[in-house]
Design a protein around this nucleic acid. Structure first.
Length: 204
DNA sequence: GTCCTGATCCTCT
DNA sequence: GAGGATCAGGACG
């Protein structure tokens, strides 16, 4: 398979940053509409970017949501203004990346679960110590490693560099809705979305 | 390919 | 002190 390196402009409609109003809406709607959008991390080594192909929504009143039992030092970013990053530590060795949604004071967000790598593939490979493209961003902790997202990015404004989300071309694929991965508490909710047939999705 | 397990530590109870 | 929005590697088929 031929490996093509894409320029950011080729994918991002001239780098149109998603405005804060995009995030300040119903969380489940934002989760669905984030599919096809572009995440870019401008690092000293160069830009690293991927196309979002899998998301999960976490809302108030949902026992699986980190904010379910009120504000704590860990989850306080979730209650802040929308359009910011929530990066948290999990399983003793990994981090996951969320975008904060809804209005300030409401602890909701969208977990980014998988990306299709677009630019900065050599940097991703170095960050991940993996060669195959499908091993770079096909999971929430993998994409955090690949993009070089760090705990220091917790609370970062996603409408300004270095870490931004950009408009992308509308997805041609269909959108599949399922229950969320690894959630055993409470009722099962259809809050996971992914692009049909995309090889970078973490699970079918 | 599928299944199982260990790694490893922060957070909240 | 228990458990978690995970991943990689090994056993097995």
């Amino acid at each position: 398979m031929v490996e093509k390196q894409f320029s950011l402009q080729e994918f991002t409609c001239g780098e149109r940053v998603l405005p804060r109003s995009f995030y300040a809406r119903d969380t489940v709607t934002v989760a669905r509409e984030l599919l096809g959008k572009i995440i870019v991390n401008y690092t000293p080594a160069g830009p690293i970017a991927g196309r979002i192909v899998e998301t999960e929504a976490y809302i108030q009143g949902d026992p699986a949501c980190h904010a379910a039992r009120g504000m704590t030092p860990r989850n306080r970013v979730m209650f802040g203004p929308p359009g910011h990053a929530y990066v948290y530590f999990i399983y003793g060795m990994y981090h996951c990346f969320n975008t904060i949604t809804a209005r300030k004071g409401v602890g909701e967000g969208v977990l980014i679960r998988a990306l299709e790598p677009l630019t900065g593939l050599p940097i991703m490979r170095a960050n991940r110590k993996r060669k195959k493209i499908v091993d770079l961003c096909s999971g929430p902790a993998k994409l955090v490693q690949a993009l070089g997202i760090l705990p220091q990015h917790n609370g970062a404004d996603l409408t300004v560099r270095p870490l931004v989300l950009l408009e992308g071309p509308p997805p041609q694929e269909g959108i599949v809705t399922t229950t969320r991965i690894g959630i055993n508490v409470g009722e099962t909710l259809p809050f996971r979305f992914y692009l049909e047939g995309n090889m970078h999705v973490s699970r079918k």
